[in-house]
């Protein structure tokens, strides 16, 4: 994976496979603490304690098509090479929360990448799932929530190509948080 936005897409796909209806993604940049925190939480089926404990082991997977699962293993690798760590909290039938931390200024910290594209792909592939994205740079904040769009435009399918194109533009224009 070249950047964090691709990791986000990958981990969120796990949530979707776990039948999540709501996925919350937060990316928090704290310059003073030199910290970048990525949190992905869902209300999917969750994991048992035993499964969650060993889930970054590549040979642990729920899939049937092959015997290795690399998504979380890759993300953990990315955190470790940037002086951070991966934490997984999960409760069966409640959901899962993945927290990945990185040293913001670390030379090996992967770039954030194209978040707008990731969100749009998630919506396009899973129009029934609600996705909330929260981006903070120090005290500045940008929030995107598919629920807002559904509320204002209840009769418009969210996965229509021109709506997706709007969302892509909306996120990429508003995500640059600068004073």
């Amino acid at each position: 994976m070249e950047d964090l936005s691709l990791h986000i897409l990958d981990i969120a796909e796990n949530s979707i496979n776990a039948n999540a209806k709501n996925i919350e993604i937060s990316l928090i940049e704290e310059k003073e603490k030199d910290l970048l925190t990525l949190v992905i939480s869902d209300d999917g089926i969750g994991m048992t304690k035993d499964f969650a404990q060993d889930v970054t082991n590549p040979f642990q997977t729920t899939r049937m098509t092959r015997k290795v699962g690399l998504g979380l293993a890759f993300l953990e690798e990315a955190t470790k090479s940037a002086n951070g760590k991966l934490t997984i909290e999960s409760t069966p039938n409640i959901g899962t929360k993945i927290t990945a931390t990185f040293q913001l200024s670390h030379i090996d910290r992967k770039p954030i990448g194209n978040i707008a594209e990731t969100i749009v792909m998630l919506i396009a592939g899973n129009p029934d799932v609600d996705i909330k994205y929260n981006h903070c740079v120090d005290e500045l904040q940008f929030i995107f929530d598919t629920k807002d769009i559904r509320e204002i435009y209840p009769n418009i399918p969210i996965n229509l190509v021109n709506v997706l194109s709007f969302i892509r533009k909306y996120i990429s224009e508003n995500i640059n948080l600068k004073k």
């Binding site: 769009i149 204002i152 009769n155 418009i156 229509l160 909306y170």
Partner: peptide, 15 residues
């Protein structure tokens, strides 16, 4: 910057 309300035009078109 573009706002959520800017979706109005598209929504109208879609309708």
């Amino acid at each position: 910057k573009i706002k959520i309300e800017d979706l109005d035009k598209i929504a109208e078109d879609v309708r």
